[in-house]
Design a protein around this nucleic acid. Structure first.
Length: 719
DNA sequence: ATCTTTCTAGTTTTT
DNA sequence: CTAGAAAGAT
């Protein structure tokens, strides 16, 4: 991202991190004192500014690295930042507090766990464990899990936690509130935290202990926050507390790229920054160094339809290039022809010498990847699909991890329950009920209770022997924790427990893959110093470093694409109901629609050179054919910057390089005015019918066999 | 205790 | 339609 228009600041020759920055960027880097909000549009060099700012602060020699706190949202962002800061500042960055909100939260919480009723070796539960725990709580309350779905209750609990509301607050009420309290009590009893707790507990800690808060406030003289538009209330409160003393808080974000409100993110945090931090400076980064002017114009025009923005206008910071293509908008017949058309274009790009790694297909929802995968396979185009179940979320990995967890911490009841009968040991409901009763009566962890239970005659001989064997195995493995190499131990556990054998014997098609994953898990373990260190890492960093090997096309969701960029981006499925998604449309007050529009904005701005939008006239959803209307977002694009070719033929195909692509209109182009109510027509899918009403290019047709439907005029022919 | 049938829901998912 | 979960059958 070199800026040809950058003004070199000669007065600071000793600040190489300012080299090549434009004036706004320099401003954002050097305004180190006081609250600063950096509104950073897509492709405006945000990460660079953040790193340079850090270099500015650290190299000024005013502070030690451990007095700086840098918070990111993803582990990936934290990793990248660490790397870049290391390169820019070198050993001067040693000791910096840099990490995700959650990892920083854990770090603080482990030091002061007792103050919130935990001990410092607490376990961190993932979504799966959380839900199982809540189910147990609800079953204990004799609730009908069908009438009150645990997922719904969990969502409410999560919402409270996201908003920084502890279970004892007055806002917490109703059945959900009661369950929240019970769930939280269970977590404490298990010495466990869920993700929300990592922030909520830290918040409680600070609020209950003014001296401790003061200590951290004093320590963090400079605070930097990335992706500020994605913070939830709890994170916001956390930041506000910590920044109160020195007020050197710099938040970087883009309200137009806030796409996680359904996960608790509050755009409001960014919108009200100036009110919360009086005297805050707001710096706008609007020079985009990524996309062509056509792409920028489309993105800006589209996002301008949202109300309640802070307002930014992206301008190109790139030297003008006369050859830029307009943003392509293509109407196709159905999902299959959409996949065919896109893959054809991909192949043409490939022939023209483009790298597949610089091309992406960005879909709204996961199910859309399927038709592309089919087509890419049949055409032999190398691809990777991102966003499936993540490595550490796979059942076999979680099972194996449960074994490790139980060996490391015998009190981990959730791990115990998960694997006690896996592989099958003949320990069913009856045996577990007996065990649970004992654990409940004595207050012992399940594993301890199991050891006691097998000394009695409360179980039948068979399950009793099985349970005794299981407990003995776990204890035996634990005994070797210190002496044995941890990767070897892990392999031994999976072998001797019969777990890996279970999958090897499994005849289902996915079983071999699971065995492979388990082997990968063992080898990944080698990179860590011990089993406990590995478990902590996995709990916080759920992703497995994607090895982006070979030249492959990427297929992923729009959400997954945030922060990435590609030369060419294909955006399929721009139809009402798909994108914007119907469920987002039914949300209150247009909020959902605006977020969908931001998602569209994110999608378009991923493209450097080429963006292609597709919409289909028909789509099969749950095996039912539905006719679709083009997304309203298409109408919101500026005509001068798009090149719209649809079956209606009202736009000229201006297919710029690569040339090899031919556009085939699925039906005979017919001018829309040609149809009159009462006229007989023929539709390739629905057969013959009679026009009932004409609405622009949409026709209400009563089909002889298929009944009444709304279809586009372009897909209808005169008989 | 485990296998089999029946039912239901079905966006996005940084930690 | 179809995957996953829960209830019923053996």
């Amino acid at each position: 991202m070199n800026d040809p228009f950058a003004i070199e600041d000669d007065s600071r020759p000793s600040a190489p991190w300012l080299n090549g920055l434009n004036p706004e960027q320099q401003d954002a880097v050097t305004a180190t004192e006081g609250p600063v909000l950096v509104l950073s549009g897509a492709g405006t060099g945000k990460t660079r500014v953040l790193t340079a700012r850090l270099a500015e602060i650290l190299n000024g020699g005013r502070v030690r690295p451990w007095q700086c706190l840098v918070v990111t949202f993803t582990n990936k962002a934290a990793r990248e930042m660490k790397e870049r800061v290391g390169r820019l500042v070198g050993p001067g960055a040693e000791g910096l507090w840099l990490g995700t909100f959650h990892s920083i939260g854990v770090r603080i919480l482990r030091r002061h766990a007792e103050a919130v009723g935990l001990s410092s070796n607490f376990t961190i539960l993932d979504a799966d464990d959380q839900l199982r725990l809540l189910k147990q709580v609800m079953e204990a309350e004799h609730l009908d899990l069908k009438k009150t779905p645990p997922q719904g209750v969990m969502a409410q609990i999560q919402r409270w936690k996201d908003r920084g509301i502890a279970p004892d607050k007055p806002e917490v009420g109703g059945l959900d509130g009661k369950l929240y309290q019970a769930y939280q009590a269970r977590l404490l009893a298990l010495n466990a935290c869920d993700f929300g707790d990592l922030l909520l507990h830290t918040l409680t800690l600070f609020l209950n202990d003014a001296a401790l808060l003061e200590q951290y406030q004093e320590q963090f003289r400079y605070i930097l926050v990335d992706e500020y538009q994605d913070t939830n209330v709890s994170q916001y409160l956390w930041l506000r507390l910590l920044a109160q003393k020195h007020r050197n808080l710099c938040c970087v974000g883009d309200d137009d790229q806030s796409i996680y409100s359904w996960r608790g993110a509050e755009v409001g945090n960014i919108l009200r920054f100036e009110k919360d931090f009086p005297g805050a400076r707001v710096i706008r980064l609007e020079r985009n160094y990524r996309s062509t002017p056509h792409i920028l114009a489309c993105a800006s025009h589209l996002i301008a339809h949202n109300a309640g923005r802070l307002g930014k206008t992206l301008r190109s910071g790139l030297p003008p290039a006369g050859t830029a293509e307009k943003v392509g908008v293509r109407g196709v017949w159905d999902g299959e022809s959409e996949a065919r058309a896109i893959v054809e274009e991909v192949e043409a790009l490939q022939r023209a010498g483009e790298k597949l790694a610089s091309v992406a297909i960005l879909v709204r929802a996961g199910f859309q990847t399927r038709e592309f995968e089919d087509r890419l396979i049949s055409q032999g185009v190398p691809y990777r699909i991102l966003g499936g179940p993540r490595f550490y979320e796979r059942a076999e990995i979680r099972d194996a991890m449960a074994y490790f967890r139980l060996v490391v911490s015998p009190a981990d009841g959730l791990a115990f329950e998960r694997i006690v009968n896996l592989p099958k040991r003949g320990l069913g409901e009856a045996a577990l009920a007996t065990l649970n009763a004992l654990a409940g009566r004595t207050g012992l962890p399940l594993f301890e209770a199991a050891k006691r239970l097998v000394t009695s005659d409360d179980l039948k001989p068979k399950p009793r022997a099985a349970l005794a064997q299981f407990a003995a195995d776990i204890d035996r493995w634990r005994a070797t924790l210190d002496g044995m190499d941890h990767a070897d131990l892990a392999a031994t556990i999976l072998d001797e427990s019969g777990y890996i054998e279970m999958w090897k014997a499994d005849k289902s098609p996915e079983a071999p893959g699971r065995v492979e994953n388990l082997k990968e898990l063992i080898s990944a373990l080698g990179d860590f110093e011990s089993l406990p260190v590995f478990l902590e890492h996995v709990a916080l960093v759920m992703d497995n470093d994607e090895k982006a090997e070979g030249d492959r096309l990427t297929v992923m969701t729009l959400h997954g694409a945030k922060g990435l960029e590609f030369d060419t981006v294909f955006l399929p499925g721009w139809e009402e109901g798909v994108f914007p998604h119907s469920r987002a449309l039914s949300e209150d007050g247009g909020k959902g629609l605006e977020e969908e529009r931001r998602l569209a904005y994110v999608g378009i701005t991923r493209a450097r050179k080429r963006a292609r939008i597709f919409y289909a006239a028909n789509r099969r959803i749950y095996n039912k054919w539905q006719d679709c209307l083009p997304s309203r977002f298409i109408a919101e694009l500026p005509e001068a910057h798009i090149d719209h070719v649809s079956a209606t033929g009202y736009a000229q195909p201006r297919w710029s390089a690569p040339r090899a692509v031919t556009w085939t209109a699925p039906a005979q182009p017919v001018a829309e005015s040609d149809f009159r109510p009462g006229e007989r027509v023929f539709h390739t899918k629905f057969g013959p019918g009679t026009v009932k009403a004409v609405e622009g290019d949409r026709l209400d047709i009563h089909f002889d066999h298929a009944g009444p439907k709304k279809v586009l005029a372009s897909f209808v022919e005169k008989p």
